[in-house]
Simulated scan of single mutants.
Amino acid sequence: MRYDLVIFDNDGVLVDSEPISNTLLAAYLTELGHPTTYEESVRDYMGSAMHRIHELVEERSGELLPTEFDETFHTRVFAAFQAELEAVPGVVEVLKGLAGAGVPYCVASSGSHERIRVGHRKTGLDVWFRDEIVFSAEDVGRGKPSPDLFLHAASRMGVAPERCVVVEDSRLGVQAALAAGMDVYGFTAMTPEEKLTGAKGFFGSMDELPTILSP
């Protein structure tokens, strides 16, 4: 292994949540008078923290989202997760391989700690992610594309940024990893390569990842 730490994004990389959450986000924004298609939600918000949604809506419309927006959205998302959410195919095998080889890993997500935990419990990934290796944009204040979250994760894990590799599936996540001075590989199961400019390489299936990360 040529890296000392593997940092996973969560949504779309560990849990197959992006189709669920972006469908609900587009519908909720449209309901509130900000017409948004699923494709626009993926383009504008995938991989971002909640504050970015508020900022873009205000920037484009001059209007503030309601104070209960986050709570209502998360309630809808968590209910859908309980009914539909699954782990990304092959990711458990990747985690088993890293653990077996003694390679440290963690998750650094734009989602809240509650969102991460709800998804992990539903999919069984909670057995692979102890609290001390779960990092959220809530921990740093500024989400991706700021490098703060990835730098925070590396610092807490005791690894220099240049010795870290990030596994991402969003444009904002790739930008954040590059800004943090880390190598990043783009997962293209949902996002085409051209949307992940700057990634060191690309893969479309989790069974490809162990070979990519090996020397």
Rank of each mutant, 00 (worst) to 15 (best):
A49F: 00
L32C: 01
G97R: 02
R52K: 10
V103I: 11
S17W: 10
F69P: 06
D9Q: 01
V92A: 12
L64G: 00
F69S: 05
V91K: 07
P19D: 08
V13W: 00
L24N: 02
L25E: 14
V6N: 00
T36S: 00
E68Y: 14
R52C: 11
S21V: 09
E18L: 03
Y45E: 00
E31Y: 09
E40W: 11
L85Y: 11
T75C: 09
L24G: 04
V91R: 10
E84M: 14
L65G: 12
E55Y: 15
P89A: 04
G100R: 00
T72W: 10
N22V: 09
F69A: 03
S17A: 08
R43E: 05
Y38H: 14
P35E: 04
H74N: 02
E59D: 14
D9H: 13
E18Y: 07
E39Q: 03
E59H: 06
V94Q: 00
L24M: 06
V13E: 09
L14V: 03
A99W: 10
R52I: 08
P35Q: 09
N22K: 04
H54T: 02
T72S: 12
V91G: 05
E63H: 15
Y38E: 15
A83D: 12
G100L: 03
E58C: 14
I20V: 13
T36F: 08
V77S: 14
T67Y: 08
T30R: 03
V92R: 11
L25P: 13
Q82V: 01
T75Y: 11
T37D: 04
A26T: 08
D70N: 12
D16I: 04
A87S: 06
Q82A: 04
R76M: 15
Y28P: 01
L85W: 07
D16Q: 04
L65N: 12
L65V: 07
A79L: 05
A101F: 01
F69N: 12
Y28R: 01
H51T: 07
E55F: 13
G33N: 09
A27G: 02
L29P: 14
D70A: 15
Y45W: 03
T23M: 14
N22W: 05
M46H: 04
L14I: 07
G47K: 05
V15S: 14
H51L: 15
V6C: 09
A101T: 03
E59C: 08
D16F: 06
P89F: 12
K96A: 13
H54A: 00
G12Y: 00
E68D: 11
T75V: 10
D4T: 02
V94A: 02
G62Y: 04
G33Q: 02
S48Y: 03
S61K: 06
A87N: 09
L32V: 11
T37A: 07
V88E: 12
S17C: 04
E86Y: 03
H74W: 08
V13I: 07
L14G: 06
L56F: 14
S17R: 05
A101N: 00
T36P: 06
A79S: 02
D11H: 00
E18N: 07
A26Y: 12
L65Q: 10
